[in-house]
Nucleic acid binder design. Structure first.
Lengths: 132, 132
DNA sequence: GATAAGGTTTCCACTTACTGGAAGGTCAAG
DNA sequence: CTTGACCTTCCAGTAAGTGGAAACCTTATC
């Protein structure tokens, strides 16, 4: 398969696939013309990475997950630990975002949004009175 | 005020304040020794930026918000529009994160996390069966 | 006056995970 | 034989800082 075929099959942009090769996530063979010749295992790895990235795992996490996947003898506890750490980071980020959203929604609601210049959003940013 | 004083007062790292000057968000005067001599208006601007960043506004948004703030005649509708757009982006991000979190939590829960190699997390990443 | 500690300056590099674009080689069709 | 669609590499840029080096300034102490 040429790169655009794998791109279609994996759902990843060709550019991204080249990048993943650059950073050593895949090592596809090359055809005599220099084109990447991806096989099913390359596609499988890319799909794996795509799904892990879709769950928010970092590239380094993906590297580790793939190493875990390749090591048929590793303990599932190791994988679970990695996933739990990631989950905890997501929860932190979620809490932050919810807080932002609530404050922002409150401010947006308070702003009448008409032709007049008076604006509670700017007032709040300016004087730092964050009324929840 | 020297930079460390403003850092303390604004809650921003000195490095960040220098960076904000680099990109033109503030233009503090200089003392004869070359040190930045920040006045209250610099501090006010930094605090404003810090709060806007805390609400997740991008630097470019901050630039615009400060322009709005400086323009006493702009319509509050303009500010509200900017904030609403930002709120909408946050909502999208929140929905994505929640989806990630739910899928991930499900997988973590399904993984027994012991010494054995069998692991639903890796299985899912590998075969792409995302059972919600 | 010397020295040491601590604050400040600039500048350069690095981070994450790509993405865009340029210059050029390859392939299949007509 | 040319056209268009692929493909290649390499360089640069993104967001928003952060880390560190080398050098200058200030203040206190000896």
């Amino acid at each position: 398969m040429n790169i655009s075929d794998v791109a279609k099959a994996s759902g990843l942009p060709a550019k991204t696939i080249r990048y993943y090769e650059d950073i050593g996530l895949i090592q596809p063979k090359r055809s005599s013309n220099g084109y990447r010749a991806c096989d099913d295992s390359d596609l499988h790895r890319l799909a794996f990475i795509g799904r892990a990235r879709g769950l928010g795992f970092s590239i380094e996490d993906c590297r580790e997950l793939m190493a875990f996947y390749a090591d048929r003898d590793r303990a599932s506890a190791d994988v679970k630990q990695l996933a739990e750490d990631h989950l905890a980071r997501i929860d932190v980020r979620l809490a932050e975002l919810r807080q932002m959203r609530d404050t922002l929604a409150h401010l947006v609601h308070a702003c009448h949004g008409d032709d007049r210049p008076d604006c509670p959003i700017l007032s709040d940013l300016s004087d730092g009175l964050a009324r929840a």
